[in-house]
Design a protein around this nucleic acid. Structure first.
Lengths: 218, 218
DNA sequence: ACCTGAACACCGTTCAAGT
DNA sequence: ACCTGAACACCGTTCAAGT
């Protein structure tokens, strides 16, 4: 065939197909050869559009970051810093929950991914505008990232097996119900996320008060 | 050579060599062929001791879990639940910091790894003994896991690049200093971890009070 | 029981050749 | 510029063969 008059591939098309494959079958299922096959081309063709397979994965991850709502950090948005952080965390978590298999790639850090950087920038801007000192604003961005990404990557319930025999009551006296965890999985993780998020925000509010921030600037 | 009179390999030896290789060069550097070469045998020999490469990785991860201090959750330990959680989180984080490359494997969940299960069991036992209702104790175990694993897997500072040109001030108005983050990396992450941990514990203490737990049982 | 080499079915990536 | 097939240097894993 050689070169067709109209390109068979585009960056967007490759990223979309890669994302669909990862969503459907997981990170390991994505090989350049399989991805190319899905797109109806041969493996090496991808290298006309991306330098490496990893670059494709970064683009898939960034597309997920791009879906995180950041409107709560805009200057004219009415929400106070606590509500903004809470709403953002929920939006962030929801975006990750829709594409769980790509989360480990997102967790590597914003790196050079534009949408990932936009998230970091927005949180920092929102917190400093609300009266947090810059050094604290950086920390808040980091710690929220830990918690939200941790909840997605280290799902508690998903980590247990349904095989009851794995939990010898002699060895693990408190894990009698652990084999039921995968079943209740979603609700356990959701409850833990909400409890943790509330605790985090309550704790940060205490710290904000101690700052002398009696009249928060929004 | 065929079978030697004394086995060349042992599970412990394989796990130790695999751990060293992962620590030194990262997860992707571990191939069965390279690991075997380090041990002075041929690739397939490993399959006499482990069923899959993944089982080796699980064993490496479990060895890290086994180094997490759990003494604070023992019945006769004097620490109250908050101090116990705080000390545990620090020990957990330190263990992960010593072996950052294996953290993604640990994050997959305790699964069937004995030391991982022992951690989950100890936290749950410690929290219920302190007066937390079982459902809340489960959530606390999960949310602490999110935060500690998140801090290890999603290191904030390590995710930025030192290349200043990646942070166009037009696009990211608040990231002017972002290229300095890798340098300050360790201290930013440490500060964020401490801030987040304190906030989490402060928030949980509020919740504990609301439980009517005026006389905590230790 | 525990090692070996050969083999199978894959990988990511490079590159010269085609249009 | 953008695709191809062939090739390189790898993978994880299976298996018959050796002692």
């Amino acid at each position: 065939m050689a070169r067709p008059r109209k390109p068979l591939l585009s960056r967007e098309g490759i990223v979309a197909a890669a994302g669909a494959l990862v969503d459907a079958e997981g990170l390991e299922a994505l090989s350049t050869r399989r991805l190319a096959a899905v797109l109806g081309v041969s493996g090496p063709s991808l290298y006309n559009h991306f330098r490496t397979k990893d670059e494709i994965l970064e683009a898939v991850a960034d597309a997920v970051s791009a879906r995180v709502d950041l409107s709560m950090f805009e200057p004219d948005d009415g929400r106070d810093w606590r509500t903004a952080l809470e709403d953002w965390a929920h939006s962030y978590r929801a975006a990750l929950a829709d594409h769980p298999h790509i989360v480990p790639v997102l967790a590597r850090g914003p790196g050079r991914r534009p949408a990932g950087l936009r998230v970091a920038d927005a949180v920092f801007g929102g917190m400093t505008a609300a009266g947090w000192p810059p050094s604290q604003a950086t920390r808040i961005g980091a710690l929220m990232r830990y918690f939200v990404l941790g909840s997605a990557v280290a799902s508690f319930a998903g980590g247990f097996t349904e095989d009851r025999s794995a939990y010898d009551p002699e060895a693990y006296p408190h894990l009698g119900q652990a084999h039921l965890l995968p079943e209740r999985g979603r609700s356990v993780d959701e409850g833990a996320f909400e409890t943790g998020l509330t605790a985090l925000l309550d704790g940060l509010a205490l710290r904000f008060e101690a700052l002398g921030g009696d009249e928060p600037r929004s």
